[in-house]
């Protein structure tokens, strides 16, 4: 073990350097390999660095996002940054968000299955979501017509600041046909 890796403070600073050069989320494995430390030590270093960033009044924070760690600015600085940068393309439309949430929970899923839930066609919405790299094709369903299956991408996780799909809010339980029936019976006189 080298001298730096015995010193937790230096390790935190080394981690900061790694996160600075990483322009995408860096996995625990990649970071611990570079720092020659165990994954537990790395997680401790992440905590140390975050504490240091907090106490020094830094505008940066460590985010656990899309399966790795990444440095990001804190939300409070968004207004200032907005004055510097040019405006990006707009937010997602409501049809896009609805379609995306159906795909997120039910993936892999075909276009007809999405349309059955929404009650409207969604071909153009799917094209938009693919262009924005929020969804991608995931093979085809072994069913008549071999319809294309869709799933969400890593970029989807990043777009909503999620670490993984398990971070999605729990969906209300689906009502089974029996439950619907009994609920309807109970209101009938």
């Amino acid at each position: 073990m080298s001298l730096e890796s015995d010193n937790p403070l230096d390790r935190a600073a080394s981690l900061e350097a790694l996160l600075f050069v990483g322009s995408e989320p860096l996995s625990i494995e990649a970071l611990s390999r570079a720092l020659l430390c165990s994954e537990e030590e790395l997680i401790a270093a992440v905590g140390d660095l975050q504490t240091r960033l907090d106490s020094s009044g830094s505008s940066l924070q460590i985010l656990s996002i899309a399966g790795g760690y990444q440095l990001a600015t804190r939300p409070a600085y968004s207004v200032i940054i907005g004055r510097l940068l040019a405006r990006q393309r707009g937010k997602l439309s409501r049809p896009a968000l609805e379609t995306l949430s159906i795909i997120a929970y039910r993936q892999p899923i075909t276009q007809p299955e999405i349309e059955a839930v929404r009650g409207v066609g969604c071909a153009s919405v799917l094209t938009t979501l693919i262009e924005r790299e929020l969804i991608e094709e995931a093979g085809r369903r072994a069913a008549p017509g071999r319809p294309i299956l869709y799933r969400t991408t890593q970029n989807f996780l990043h777009y909503f600041a999620l670490e993984d799909l398990a971070d999605l809010p729990p969906l209300e339980d689906a009502a089974s046909p029996d439950e619907v029936r009994s609920a309807m019976d109970s209101v009938d006189p």
């Binding site: 440095l71 990001a72 939300p75």
Partner: peptide, 18 residues
């Protein structure tokens, strides 16, 4: 769920990365 995603999209839009 789409409403939740809308909120998260807004939150994420306030963060910047290199």
């Amino acid at each position: 769920a789409a409403e939740t995603l809308r909120d998260w999209e807004a939150f994420r839009a306030s963060l910047y990365f290199r």
